[in-house]
């Protein structure tokens, strides 16, 4: 077991973890933050995407021991985030989710798109979403939701 200290959604956490525990399993099983979903567990589907030190990353292939000293934000940590508020509303209005399994990862990726690429057009949004799989919506609603938030932010 290895002792780690990090912040999760702004709160300091110290815990003893097995090196092989993924960050995803650590937040889900250890911290009871089950908003982070696991699909493929090898980096492909994007369901587990969380923010580590301000950047979206895969929590299924990132080990909790590697996050000692890091600031981790899971979907539960974005309740009061302005961009995420807009995205939640837009996903609701545009049928951006059905079963919701992909949604936490989609939202973390979507938030990165609207903040990092303010001028993104539909083609770019689709390219940036290529690492997040959705088996329900066919992506049309998700793309539309992100484009509407981009437009709103451009004013």
């Amino acid at each position: 077991m290895t002792e780690i200290s990090l912040t999760i959604n702004g709160a300091p956490v110290t815990a003893s973890v097995e090196p092989r525990t993924s960050l995803a399993d650590f937040v889900r099983d250890g911290q009871r933050l089950t908003g982070t979903h696991l699909g493929c567990e090898h980096g492909v589907c994007g369901a587990c995407t969380v923010e580590i030190d301000g950047e979206p990353m895969r929590s299924c292939i990132t080990y909790a021991v590697s996050c000692d000293g890091a600031a981790v934000t899971t979907i539960e940590g974005f309740d009061d985030d302005a961009a995420m508020e807009d995205l939640r509303q837009a996903f609701t209005e545009n049928h951006g989710l059905q079963c919701g399994y992909c949604t936490p990862g989609m939202l973390v990726t979507a938030r990165d798109i609207v903040r990092r690429l303010p001028d993104a057009d539909e083609k770019r949004v689709r390219l940036e979403l290529s690492g997040n799989l959705c088996r329900c919506t066919g992506y049309v609603g998700i793309v539309r939701a992100i484009l509407s938030v981009l437009e709103k932010r451009r004013g």
């Binding site: 580590i52 979206p56 990726t109 690492g131």
Partner: peptide, 9 residues
Amino acid sequence: IAYRAVRNR
């Protein structure tokens, strides 16, 4: 290379 969330790490 891969996707942004992979490129970030």
